[in-house]
Write a protein that binds this DNA or RNA. Structure first.
Length: 423
RNA sequence: GGUUAGGUGGCUGAGUGGUCGAAAGCACUUCUUUGCUAAAGAAGCGUACCCGUGAGGGUACCCAGGGUUCGAAUCCCUGCCUGACCGCCA
């Protein structure tokens, strides 16, 4: 959520930055400001009346104690009470509208964010490793997995529906090995605390991190929208800190979690989604940071390298891109995507998205810290995938496939797989 | 799911219609003092919003939402949550 004070001060500057996203959100700004004015005028008047009522009510108490008649001023207070109610309702209506609109306005892209209208304008900021070459004809992960019996889409459809997968045998073990490997890496090397949150989470969480009110259709809702299957661990983990005032010395908070993620992926049919690439349920290790506002952009760089470390340890070629203003997510001010090379597909696959939300989520969820001067200030929140598993899985199978049809297990995973070859 | 007891400030815990934003203790901050790794004394110490250049002033908040009343932490209703016991269960 944007800061209403900043909005009052310079609405034109905010509109300009919103326009860089390409959406229509900037149109809402004028109505938000007029609601804000109505709200404040109503509140001021209401508070004056409340002050009058409090004073006169006390007089009634005093008169009664002395045994005197107070009926004259009682009716006056009753009148004030009615006006308070009427004015209060007007102010509440304006406030509700203001909040409703404000929740629909995305974050402002950071000033350095490259300007562009879509993903074709996203610059590559760095690459690591090179595309591997093969002396034999490469297969994609769907073929490799089928031959080695690692996963089965039809089995999943039988017990669920399309868009799900059942990992089997060594394939299931590989999934588990990756979870273990990634959690160990982030907790032991990068200093994260591990949590394991509920996967069914309430509606407030969704507003806190910005999925609601705009993206309800992307998620699996339960109990008439009172609860949702978590679309990413970002939501439960960041919301652990909702409505909190942290000590400055608590910062930075670094928390990692493994969770399955559930997404409807409505409207993505027909896009690149072969095999494991786009699932309704997928596993992900998430990295969440809560930091001092002065440090969030430096922390974003660090967080991104922590996610990149995953691919380096597994020896997978990747590139890191920065999202332009037209492609950066709703709540984010600045985002890097990490894309791993999948030789069988001949394409880069997004395995991580690392974002700085600045104070946007913190303001929505009232996540603050008390600074040295005793002021409560909003924290900055960040998160990054560290990483999503299915596409990592794809890249592993396709990168480490061998001429005989087996797959070599990368050294870092051998202790977890307890074997050097799959198949 | 049933029965029952509760939900008050960072924590513990008073407070059953007006002078309660709320006693007291603990914790915390600053100062004073003695001195040494502790003790004593004093003051301060919730959140949000509104008005004001400012100093400052005001309003709301005692789980949430309604209601009764001139006036609600206090009475009534609903919901949520927590504990205990019972049922059920991995």
């Amino acid at each position: 959520m944007l800061d209403i004070r900043q909005l009052r001060e310079d609405p034109e500057a905010i509109k300009t930055r919103l326009k860089a996203r390409g959406g229509e959100a900037w149109i809402l700004i004028d109505e938000i400001l007029s609601c804000d004015e109505k709200r404040r005028a109503g509140e001021t008047e209401k508070q004056q009346l409340q002050s009058d009522r409090n004073r006169i009510s006390k007089e009634i108490g005093a008169l009664r104690k002395e045994g005197k008649d107070a009926s004259a001023i009682e009716s006056r207070v009753r009148e004030i009470g009615e006006r308070i109610k009427a004015i209060g309702e007007e102010a509440d209506t304006a406030e509700a509208r203001q909040i409703e609109l404000l929740l629909q306005v995305p974050n402002l892209p950071h000033a350095d964010c490259p300007v562009g209208s879509d993903e074709t304008a996203n610059p590559v900021v760095r690459e690591w490793g090179t595309k591997p070459t093969f002396a034999f004809e490469t297969k994609d992960h769907v073929e490799i997995g089928a031959r080695l019996g690692l996963f089965d889409f039809e089995l999943a459809t039988k017990i669920s529906t399309g868009g799900f997968v059942t990992f089997t045998g060594a394939g299931a073990r590989l999934e588990r090995a990756l979870i273990q490997f990634l959690l160990d890496l982030h907790t032991e090397t990068h200093g994260y605390d591990e949590v394991s949150p509920p996967y069914i989470i309430n509606r407030d969480c969704m507003f806190g991190t910005g999925q609601l009110p705009k993206f309800e259709d992307d998620m699996y809702g339960l109990e008439n929208g009172a609860f949702f299957l978590a679309p990413t661990a970002e939501v439960p983990v960041t919301n652990l800190y909702r409505d909190q005032i942290l000590k400055e010395t608590d910062l930075p908070v670094k928390v990692t979690a493994y969770t399955p993620c559930f997404r409807r992926e409505a409207g993505s049919a027909g896009r690149e989604s072969r095999g494991l690439i786009r699932m309704h349920q997928f596993d992900k290790i998430e990295l969440v940071n809560i930091v001092h506002p002065d440090e969030s952009y430096a922390q974003l760089e660090k967080l991104t390298t922590e996610a990149e470390a995953v691919l380096q340890r597994l020896g997978l070629h990747y590139r890191t891109i920065e999202l332009c203003t037209g492609d950066v997510g709703f709540s984010s001010a600045k985002t890097y995507d990490i894309e791993v090379w999948a030789p069988g597909h001949g394409a880069y696959l997004e395995v991580s998205s690392c974002s700085n939300f600045a104070d946007y989520q913190a303001r929505r969820m009232k996540l603050r810290f008390k600074d040295a001067a005793g002021n409560n200030r909003f924290c900055h929140t960040l998160n990054g995938s560290g990483t999503a598993l299915p596409r990592l899985y794809v890249a592993l199978l396709e990168t480490y496939q061998q001429a005989d049809g087996t797959v070599k297990v990368p050294e870092a995973l051998v202790p977890y797989m307890k074997r050097e070859t799959i198949g």
